[in-house]
């Protein structure tokens, strides 16, 4: 049976530090403003009591990738294991994929004049390694899951700031934080 690999992002654990994003930028030696993974601040009333909460997202390796549909030169493929791969050699830099993606994932690299996005480090996965963001998160808050094998019952498919999953059926899922007890003066 084919796999359906996707990120499982544990917001309960995430401290919003951006180490995932910067370790990715460092490992792939991206241009300073290129962000294959990004950490977004969530509304502070997310769990009822006010907290600082963040969500880390990259490419969502969608079941129905809009980038793939939009690409005029067929630079996008979806692998058997579900990873959406962008072939930069084929890319003509037209930026249609970036406009089509509800999550704004593909980014234009003005130096290479090509689009760029997260590959889930498929070459590392193929060698038995974890994606850099998964391996380097100081809190172990990002995981890769084969959603054909596992349907984590405590995971949700959408959080605020994350576009409607019914459009492209992203594989990314999230574990929401549990509210703690608070004694506040205000």
């Amino acid at each position: 049976m084919a796999k359906k690999l996707g990120f499982l992002v544990n917001i309960e654990r995430c401290i919003g530090c951006h180490a995932c994003e910067i370790s990715c930028k460092s490992f792939y030696q991206l241009e300073p403003n290129m962000r294959r993974r990004r950490v977004t601040e969530l509304p502070e009333n997310l769990v009822g009591t006010p907290v600082r909460a963040f969500v880390s997202t990259a490419c969502n390796h969608c079941d129905e990738p809009a980038c793939k549909k939009a690409c005029p030169v067929g630079a996008y493929t979806k692998r058997e294991d579900g990873i959406v791969v962008h072939d930069q050699n084929m890319c003509i830099g037209c930026q249609m994929c970036g406009k089509a993606c509800p999550y704004g994932v593909p980014q234009y690299n003005p130096v290479k004049k090509k689009m760029d996005k997260c590959s889930m480090c498929y070459d590392r996965l193929d060698e038995g390694q974890l994606p850099i963001c998964v391996e380097k998160c100081p809190l172990e808050a990002i995981q890769i899951v084969d959603y054909n094998e596992v349907q984590p019952s405590n995971a949700v498919s959408v959080v605020p700031t994350f576009a409607d999953p019914s459009i492209t059926h992203p594989t990314t899922h999230f574990i929401l934080p549990k509210p703690g007890k608070q004694t506040r003066r205000f």
Partner: peptide
Amino acid sequence: LITQTASKADEYIQVK
């Protein structure tokens, strides 16, 4: 302050 760490606490106490 409700710090990032306070946001992860089982119990947070806001002291003056």
